[in-house]
C-alpha cells in the first residue's frame, strides 16, 4: 500500500504551493500544480514546475482534473483565504470522501475552511511562530526536532506501521513491546480502528492489546524501521 504512487493536485502556484509540490515530488508522489493566475503560473514555470492553467471556479474543469475520480488528495494553497474556501466547497461537493488539505492566512479562516469541508487546515504562521518560540524557550528540544522530525533527509523518522495478522506483535500489550531493546526504536502509540482514528499513546493508563489492523507509530532510524517492517511481515 505504501508503494503506490498517489495522484495529488496542488491548487495554487505561489511560494507555499511550490515548496509543497517540491517536497511531495521528492517523496515520489504524482503531483499536478494548477492555478488560474497567469502571473503566478509564469513564476512557477520559471522556477521549473510544470504548472497548468485551470479555472478553479468552474466545476467542469475541476472534474476534468480528476477530482472526484482518480485524484487521491487535494491541496488548496491559493493565496487568498476566500479563494481557498470557495475551492474547498466546490471540491467537497464533487468528492465527498477525498482528503482536502488547505492553508489558512488567519485564525478565523481555520474554522471557516473546516466548515467548508477541509480535512486538515494548516496555519503556517501559527506553526512558524510556535517554532520560533520553541527556539527561544527550549532551544535544545527545538534543535533535536530540527534534526529529527522537522528536518529533511535526517536521521530519525516517524513511521506508521500496520500490524499484519499473525505477526510477532499481534496479541502483545502496547507497553510490553520492548522495541527499544530489540530494535533501536521508540514506540509512541497505536491507532486502533475500532476506537477511531485517534492515536492511543503508549503512556495511556488503559493497557492496549495490539491486534490485526492496528497501526503502530514508532520513531527511529530508517534502517531500524525497515528491519522491524521486514520482521513483522514474517509470521511469528
Amino acid at each position: 500500500m505504501e508503494e503506490r504512487k498517489r495522484n495529488i493536485v496542488v491548487a495554487g502556484a505561489g511560494p507555499v504551493a511550490q515548496e509543497v509540490a517540491r517536497q511531495l515530488c521528492e517523496r515520489g508522489e504524482r503531483v499536478r500544480l494548477v492555478d488560474y493566475d497567469a502571473e503566478r503560473l509564469k513564476k512557477a514555470r520559471l522556477a521549473g514546475f510544470k504548472a497548468e492553467q485551470v479555472n478553479l471556479e468552474d466545476d467542469e474543469e475541476l472534474r476534468s482534473l480528476g477530482l472526484g475520480s482518480e485524484v487521491d488528495v487535494l491541496f488548496a494553497l491559493l493565496e487568498e483565504d476566500a479563494e481557498n474556501v470557495f475551492l474547498v466547497i466546490s471540491v467537497r461537493a464533487l468528492a465527498p470522501k477525498m482528503p482536502i488539505v488547505a492553508i489558512s492566512e488567519t485564525e478565523e479562516t481555520v474554522k471557516r475552511l473546516q466548515a467548508a469541508g477541509a480535512t486538515k487546515v494548516i496555519d503556517p504562521y501559527q506553526i512558524s511562530g510556535y517554532r520560533i518560540y520553541e527556539m527561544v524557550h527550549r532551544p535544545v528540544i527545538a534543535e533535536i526536532m530540527d534534526r529529527t522530525v522537522f528536518g529533511r533527509g535526517v536521521d530519525l523518522q516517524i513511521s506508521e506501521i500496520p500490524v499484519p495478522a499473525g505477526c510477532f506483535l499481534d496479541g502483545e500489550y502496547l507497553d510490553r513491546l520492548e522495541l527499544g531493546s530489540r530494535y533501536d526504536l521508540v514506540v509512541l502509540g497505536v491507532v486502533d480502528r475500532d476506537y477511531g482514528d485517534q492515536l492511543i499513546f503508549a503512556t495511556h493508563p488503559k493497557r492496549h492489546r495490539i491486534d490485526e489492523g492496528d497501526i503502530i507509530v514508532v520513531i527511529g532510524r530508517r534502517d531500524e524501521l525497515d528491519r522491524l517492517k521486514r520482521d513483522m511481515e514474517k509470521p511469528a
Binding site: 495529488i8 482528503p99 513511521s159 497501526i215
Partner: peptide
C-alpha cells in the same frame, strides 16, 4: 526558519502518515 518549508513538511507527512503526524504536531504545538 523557513515557514513555507514547514508547510511543505507537514503536507508531506500528512500524505504519508496522517495519524502519526497529527499527533506529533499536536505535541510539538503544545
Amino acid at each position: 526558519l523557513e515557514p513555507y518549508k514547514i508547510v511543505g513538511l507537514i503536507a508531506g507527512e500528512y500524505i504519508g502518515q496522517p495519524v502519526a503526524f497529527e499527533a506529533i504536531q499536536g505535541i510539538l504545538m503544545g
